[in-house]
């Protein structure tokens, strides 16, 4: 077997990621601009829905900016999961004719989306500063937080990519799951990160904290929107879920890989 050392692996990852980015914006006029436009459009929609129709957004100053600090990471998460779910199935010919570490396929999807997230965050940060949301010292925690969240996304993605090979329902299920997950996560509302109490029931608040993405969303609100230090529970939740998903994802992937190759 051809051996796959670290440098070859890195090369493969680079290629897969850049292929993903190239393909995504082929024949599109706005091209790379979409990584900004997409969250911007959804921000506008949610802004009107939750300040003009439902009105709770009015309690949060600069609600649109607050929305963006959650929407960008959520977009990363949901696009990554959708893409990883079909990553093995879409590449079945490749998998069945060339030997390479198949784990690279879901990982590359997540990394391509991560690049979008990072670029969008740079732009968002500039806008935030313009509107007076100067970051505090806590911004140094942004990178470790994103790193942990990426690890979690990769773990979940690996699980879904394997699941979808055995049951095509997984893809449909993920779509529905993401819709429910969005509203269950502190994206359009905060839990306790910005000093505005939207969720009044302490019991519900407690339950919502168990959501694997809640910790990261609250960290993003704290760091970007208010410029404060994120609460300890956020870090515990984020780290714990990252470890759980990574271990679960990689163990399942490794175990299932030889079977999956024959099932594809």
């Amino acid at each position: 077997m051809t051996d796959w050392n670290i440098s070859r692996l890195r090369l493969l990852m680079e290629s897969l990621v850049s292929k993903d980015l190239k393909v995504r914006y082929k024949r599109s006029v706005l091209g790379f601009g979409w990584f900004l436009l997409k969250p911007l459009f959804s921000m506008i929609v949610y802004y009107f829905a939750f300040t003009r129709i439902l009105r709770f957004g009015g309690a949060i100053p600069h609600f649109s900016l607050f929305l963006l600090t959650g929407l960008l990471p959520w977009n990363f998460f949901s696009s990554s999961l959708s893409a990883t779910t079909s990553s093995l199935l879409d590449n079945h010919r490749l998998i069945r004719s060339i030997h390479f570490p198949r784990m690279c396929l879901p990982v590359a999807e997540v990394l391509a989306n991560l690049i979008h997230l990072l670029l969008a965050l740079v732009v968002l940060e500039a806008v935030l500063i313009i509107f007076g949301h100067t970051p505090g010292l806590s911004i140094i925690l942004l990178i470790p937080a994103i790193l942990l969240f990426t690890v979690m996304t990769i773990g979940a993605g690996m699980l879904l990519s394997i699941g979808n090979v055995f049951y095509r329902d997984v893809k449909q299920f993920v779509e529905v799951l993401l819709l429910a997950w969005f509203y269950a996560s502190p994206i359009i509302y905060p839990l306790d990160s910005i000093g505005v109490q939207i969720i009044e029931s302490p019991g519900l608040l407690q339950i919502l904290r168990f959501n694997p993405v809640a910790g990261f969303m609250e960290i993003m609100h704290s760091i970007l929107y208010t410029g404060t230090w994120p609460a300890a529970w956020c870090w515990i939740s984020l780290s714990a879920w990252s470890v759980v998903f990574l271990i679960l994802g990689s163990v399942v992937f490794r175990k299932a890989e030889p079977v999956v190759v024959k099932e594809l």
């Binding site: 493969l12 292929k19 082929k26």
Partner: peptide, 14 residues
């Protein structure tokens, strides 16, 4: 959607 050259560049790593 990628050109011959792009495909070669990207698939060489495989």
């Amino acid at each position: 959607d990628l050109t011959g050259e792009e495909n070669l560049m990207l698939n060489g790593s495989l």
